[in-house]
Structure formats: structure tokens, C-alpha cells
């Protein structure tokens, strides 16, 4: 699914990712944990092509294609999805219009016809119900005046509608109360299957009680310093990150 080799990236002149390598197979869920400033969010941003994130060396292959050569929208249409840590508010653009344009772009890429407005509205309503968002949110501006939890649920709804092959959740759990967290986790779990992979970037082990990962990686100073199974997350919860940083140093 995804093969990252010796990736180096910088933001505003500062080297953030250093020789990062990671391989993800279809159907796997990888959790990426680490202290603040480790480069966790940078990874998601680099993979999705965010302007300002400069790849200085390394390779990323996504479903056998060179990801770094693709435009932002091409990556999305190929099936890469980033759930934003801070989803953007876009007043004046209705959520429904935005979602339909996104779904149509993906469908077109897959050689499918655009959905009729009627069919799409039906689908959007059903999907909003799955993430416990009132259908009224579909008519509002994109994320406009949404609470933190509502924004994150809107991200998960987009993920459900777009049916990506690789989902990157960038601290989707941060700032969520337990109810909202469970809604988000249930949404992710419902989408897990043998073909779809996930990168779950989180600062807190709590999320991994609900989304149980196949692999856990610890990112520190821009590279993976330790990898293990789900039990690694518990160890981190108990010990913190300090011992790893000491180990690296």
C-alpha cells in the first residue's frame, strides 16, 4: 500500500523528518505516537502534499506509484485521505456542495459517473447519521461554526463518503470528549477491511483502546525510534516518552 524510504522533509527551513522509513500493507492499522515536535503531523502533511512541506530526499510509493510526483488532488483521487488535525472553516460554501464535488472527483477518477443530486443527498444523510451529525450540518458552510467534535466527525464523514484506500488520521482524537471519541473510533472501525490501511497519528494512548492497531511506531526527532505491537502503546502510556529519547541519545 505505502512504502516510505529514507524520507527527509523540511518546513520553513527546518529539517523535521530525518531518514524516515515505514512500510504499510493493505488492511493494516499503524499507530504513530511520539512527543510534541517529533514530526507526527509533518508526516501526514508531506504525504498529502501540503504546500510548504518540502521533501529533500527519499521515496514514497503509494500503490506502486510515485506519490511525491502527484499533485495534491491526484493523491486524493488515488485514494489517500488525510483527516485534518484542524479542519478548515469555509463560510459560504455549503458542506453538501463541497462533499458532492469531492465524491464526484473521486468517482470520475475511478471511471464512474457523477452521482445525481438526489442519490448523493440520500447517501450524505445516511452517512451523517453514522457519525451522529445532524443532517442540518450538510446545509451549513463547511465546518462553519462547528464545535471541535463536530469538525472531527465531519472529517470522518468525508472519509466514509470518499472510501479511500489509505486514511491518515492526524490527531483526530485530540480535544475530543469520550463520546465523540467513540463515534470517531466506531466510524474508523466500521471502515476497516482487508484492503484499506490506516495511519493513526496520536499523542494519547486512549484512542488506541478503541482503534486497536496492528503496529505501533514511536516517532522522535523526525524518525522512527521504536516499533512494536499494540502493547508498545501501553508501555508508552506508563513510562512516557523520555526513556526512548534517552535511548536514542
Amino acid at each position: 500500500m505505502l512504502d516510505i524510504r529514507n524520507l527527509n522533509a523540511r518546513v520553513e527551513g527546518a529539517d523535521i523528518l530525518r531518514n524516515l522509513s515505514l512500510s504499510i500493507k493493505p488492511g493494516e492499522v499503524h499507530a504513530i505516537m511520539g512527543p510534541n515536535g517529533a514530526g507526527k503531523s509533518t508526516l501526514g502533511n508531506v504525504l498529502s502534499g501540503r504546500p510548504g512541506y518540502e521533501v529533500t530526499s527519499g521515496e514514497v510509493s503509494f500503490k506502486g506509484k510515485d506519490l511525491l510526483e502527484m499533485e495534491i488532488e491526484e493523491r486524493a483521487r488515488e485514494g489517500l485521505f488525510l483527516a485534518f488535525q484542524y479542519p478548515v472553516e469555509i463560510p459560504g460554501v455549503s458542506n453538501m456542495e463541497f462533499l458532492k464535488a469531492a465524491v464526484d472527483a473521486r468517482r470520475k477518477h475511478l471511471g464512474l459517473e457523477e452521482m445525481s443530486s438526489f442519490d448523493f443527498m440520500k447517501l450524505a444523510r445516511e452517512t451523517s447519521k453514522r457519525v451522529s451529525l445532524d443532517a442540518a450540518f450538510l446545509k451549513r458552510g463547511v465546518n462553519e461554526g462547528f464545535s471541535g467534535g463536530e469538525k472531527k466527525r465531519n472529517e470522518i464523514m468525508q472519509m466514509m463518503l470518499l472510501e479511500p484506500s489509505l486514511c491518515i488520521l492526524d490527531e483526530t482524537d485530540s480535544g475530543l470528549d469520550i463520546d465523540a471519541l467513540q463515534v470517531v473510533a466506531a466510524g474508523v472501525n466500521a471502515m476497516r477491511d482487508s484492503e484499506r490501511s490506516f495511519i493513526v497519528v496520536t499523542h494519547y494512548q486512549r484512542l488506541l483502546d478503541f482503534i486497536v492497531p496492528d503496529h505501533v511506531h514511536v516517532l522522535a526527532a523526525g524518525r522512527i525510534v521504536k516499533s512494536g505491537g499494540k502493547e508498545l502503546a501501553l508501555e508508552l502510556e506508563a513510562k512516557g516518552y523520555g526513556w526512548l529519547e534517552d535511548e536514542v541519545a
Binding site: 498529502s48 502534499g49 501540503r50 504546500p51 499533485e71 495534491i72 488532488e73 493523491r75 486524493a76 483521487r77 485521505f81 488525510l82 485534518f84 479542519p87 478548515v88 469555509i90 460554501v93 456542495e97 463541497f98 464535488a101 469531492a102 472527483a105 473521486r106 477518477h109 468525508q158 470518499l162
Partner: peptide, 18 residues
């Protein structure tokens, strides 16, 4: 906002029009 829309598959033109 441009990045957000494009990261959902909208072209640059579509995104800026929107």
C-alpha cells in the same frame, strides 16, 4: 482552505472557484 479542498480531490480551479 485551498489545500483542504484539493486534499479532497478538487482541482485547483474547482477549489478556487468554490
Amino acid at each position: 482552505a485551498m489545500f483542504y479542498l484539493r486534499s479532497r480531490g478538487l482541482s485547483e480551479t474547482q477549489a478556487s472557484t468554490m
